[in-house]
Design a binder for these strands. Structure first.
Lengths: 130, 130
DNA sequence: ATGGGTGTATTAGTTGATATAGTACACATA
DNA sequence: TATGTGTACTATATCAACTAATACACCCAT
């Protein structure tokens, strides 16, 4: 289920795991109530340290994506509710701003980015939580 | 001209400088041929080490934004030409993908992002190099 | 009760990027 | 010649990320 990790990426391994799981949930390849592979299982699959996976799961729990039941395992939360975090939204907008600036230097226009948005929405299935 | 730096940001100082200058050029507050503040001047203004500024300028030169003339100073390149780098474009698209995924968890829809794009385009003046 | 599977906590150590500090060099220009 | 420029080099400090090894607390099936 989980794809490979790039240990040489500037993106920390734990963050790559977080992103992958969030994407899987969004694509409904992981649904509320589903069990997430255990820390040790994921660690041996991705050839990383269990601590690194644990850090990813902890972050996912902080974000309200998953919940852990001691001794039982980790599961996708039943009631995935939107978190309205003004600061995170603000940071996201800043990220978009950087994308626009970066794009302007490599020939990617705003219209191109908008086209990407539509494509990505289709790829992800356009599922939205509420 | 250059705004303040956040030393506690996860974004390295040299990268913050790179981003700021690229934004200034895009907004035409720095035009081709204009002199960029010297390494030492920028360093004392931003209260950072000259080496850090030098690293930023080196990166900007690699990206073809500025050029250095030994003993004279650093200037915005006269012929800012678009660099068509497939890899950078691909990375940028991946960034947009992450924005969409992240947004879906905090109530930001694709339509909202598109709205941001228009606003940002207006803010930046919509100048495009060629 | 026991054993195996869970997540978690702790401590220790390595690595790499970042940033600072100080110094020195080469070049252009007034 | 003197000053301002970018650059190079070495050394040091700091921090995040990652690994490693171990231990603990909990659930559950046997």
């Amino acid at each position: 289920m989980l794809a490979q990790i790039d240990p040489r990426s500037a993106v920390p391994i734990w963050e790559q795991i977080v992103n992958q799981i969030k994407e899987l949930v969004l694509k409904e390849m992981l649904s509320p109530g589903d069990k997430v592979p255990s820390v040790r299982e994921t660690a041996s699959l991705l050839l990383v340290n269990p601590n690194t996976v644990s850090k990813a799961y902890k972050e996912l729990e902080n974000q309200g994506i998953i919940e852990t039941l001691r001794g039982r395992g980790t599961f996708v939360r039943e009631n995935l509710k939107l978190t309205f975090d003004e600061e995170r939204i603000s940071l996201l907008r800043e990220k978009v701003r950087q994308v626009v600036i970066e794009g302007s230097y490599i020939g990617v226009k705003v219209e191109d980015i908008n086209q990407w948005l539509l494509e990505i929405q289709a790829e992800l299935g356009g599922k939205i939580h509420d």
